[in-house]
C-alpha cells in the first residue's frame, strides 16, 4: 500500500496533514499503537522540517510485510553539516518557525530515536532526501 503527499514550504497551517492521514490509515489497519506512534512522530517531524526549512517537498509512504517505509524529498537549501544537524539542540530555525512552537533542534534526533533505519542524502542549495524504516511484527 502506498500514499504520496505534497508538502508546501512555509505553510504551517497545512503542516501535519500527511502524518495525520497516515496515522488514521494505520489505525484502521489495526497496527500496534506503539508502532503507529513511532511512525506518526517520525513523519510529522520530517514534514515539519520541510515546511520549516525547505521550499517544497514530497512524502512517500509505503507498507510492505513487516515494514513501514517513508521517504521525504525536498527542494531546499540542503544541510551543510549532517552530523551537526543530528545533534540535539542544533537548529537554524527562523524566528517565524520558533513562534510556531518549533526550532528546538530536537526533530532529527527524535526521528532517529523512533525509527529502525534512517538515511539522509543532501546537497547544499539543491535539497534533502530523508528515508526511514520502521519494523513491525
Amino acid at each position: 500500500m502506498d500514499r504520496k503527499y505534497i508538502i508546501e514550504g512555509g505553510n504551517f497551517s497545512e503542516a501535519g496533514f500527511a502524518s495525520s492521514d497516515v496515522k488514521k490509515l494505520l489505525k484502521k489497519l489495526g497496527l500496534p499503537t506503539n508502532i503507529i506512534k513511532k511512525v506518526a512522530i517520525a513523519m510529522y517531524e520530517a514534514e515539519i522540517n520541510v515546511v520549516a526549512h525547505a521550499y517544497r517537498g514530497e512524502m512517500e509512504f509505503k507498507i510492505v510485510p513487516g515494514q513501514i517505509r517513508v521517504t521525504v524529498q525536498d527542494e531546499g537549501p540542503g544541510i551543510p553539516d549532517v552530523e551537526l544537524a543530528f545533534t540535539e539542540g542544533f537548529s537554524t530555525a527562523s524566528s517565524k518557525v520558533r513562534e510556531m512552537g518549533f526550532g528546538a533542534g530536537m526533530g532529527l534526533p527524535n526521528i532517529k530515536r523512533n525509527t529502525d533505519e534512517i538515511s539522509l542524502h543532501t546537497e547544499v542549495e539543491k535539497g534533502t532526501k530523508l528515508s526511514f524504516i520502521i519494523n513491525f511484527t
Binding site: A15, G16, E45, G101, F102, G107
Partner: peptide, 25 residues
C-alpha cells in the same frame, strides 16, 4: 515547544498539554 512535546510524551492518553500556543500545530 512542540518539539519537546514530540520528544518527551510517553503516555499521551493520560497527559494534558497546557500551552499558550494556539495554532493548528
Amino acid at each position: 515547544l512542540m518539539s519537546d512535546v514530540l520528544a518527551f510524551t510517553h503516555e499521551g492518553d493520560s497527559t494534558v498539554l497546557i500551552t499558550a500556543l494556539s495554532n493548528s500545530q
